[in-house]
């Protein structure tokens, strides 16, 4: 199978220092994401408290649609990041794009409602808007850190995509987790202030994460 040729000292040296390794699997990566999401939910409960009335039927459908879409976007993006850590020619990382397109509908719907006069809650007059955006960002950090650590262990070769999807995953899952504690259910509040942090994290991830995971 192997041609006769001069031995390569590097191969002998690498074989000499070989130790067993635990392969990085999709299951392992998704388990790490699940733990990070669970920790985030616990932090939301500890520092902010879940909105219990939402589970008793007080929340509007838009509340569940928003948080549900954010959760789907976060899950799709986190799955993509876990997969990116194991490179492969032929990999496609397109699922988050479609989930992102669905989430973009939320601010568009909020703006349309404002312009068409179906809503009178201006996002600029929303006294809790900025606070919600900041808290969403804060609660995305555990997930962002987990994904960056996973990528650093891995061998990502699509660095820009890895960064963008890390930001999307952390931003969306953080916003969804925090969203369960927010009792404001208007489409403008949810569609603008709970979604903008996702875009902010995606941009931050796109430019910051490649520097952290380059190898």
């Amino acid at each position: 199978m192997t041609m006769n040729r001069a031995p390569n000292p590097l191969i002998d040296a690498l074989a000499e220092e070989l130790v067993p390794v635990k392969p990085m699997t999709m299951r392992g990566g998704m388990a790490a994401v699940a733990v990070a999401v669970a920790v985030t939910l616990v932090l939301v409960e500890l520092f902010h408290g879940m909105w219990q009335d939402a589970f008793a039927g007080a929340a509007t459908p838009f509340f569940w649609v928003t948080n549900g879409l954010l959760a789907v976007l976060g899950l799709a993006s986190a799955t993509s990041v876990v997969r990116i850590a194991g490179p492969r020619v032929g990999n496609r990382h397109e699922a988050p794009q479609w989930a992102l397109a669905a989430v973009v509908v939320l601010p568009l719907a909020a703006i349309a409602a404002l312009l068409l006069g179906h809503s009178d809650e201006s996002p600029l007059a929303d006294r809790y808007g900025l606070e919600c955006a900041q808290l969403s960002l804060a609660f995305s950090l555990v997930i962002a850190g987990t994904l960056v650590l996973w990528l650093r262990r891995g061998a990502p070769v699509s660095l820009a995509v890895a960064g963008f999807h890390t930001g999307l995953a952390a931003g969306a899952l953080g916003a969804a987790a925090y969203g369960l504690s927010c009792p404001l259910t208007g489409e403008t509040h949810l569609g603008i202030w709970h979604v903008v942090p996702v875009f902010a994290m995606a941009l931050a991830g796109r430019f910051a994460v490649p520097h952290l995971v380059r190898w």
Binding site: V21, P23, G86, P87, R88, A155
Partner: peptide
């Protein structure tokens, strides 16, 4: 460790 035994080897090596 980043090669997953459920996937092919050469596409992994080619990407690297």
């Amino acid at each position: 460790a980043t090669w997953d035994s459920s996937r092919a080897f050469l596409p992994w090596l080619a990407a690297i």
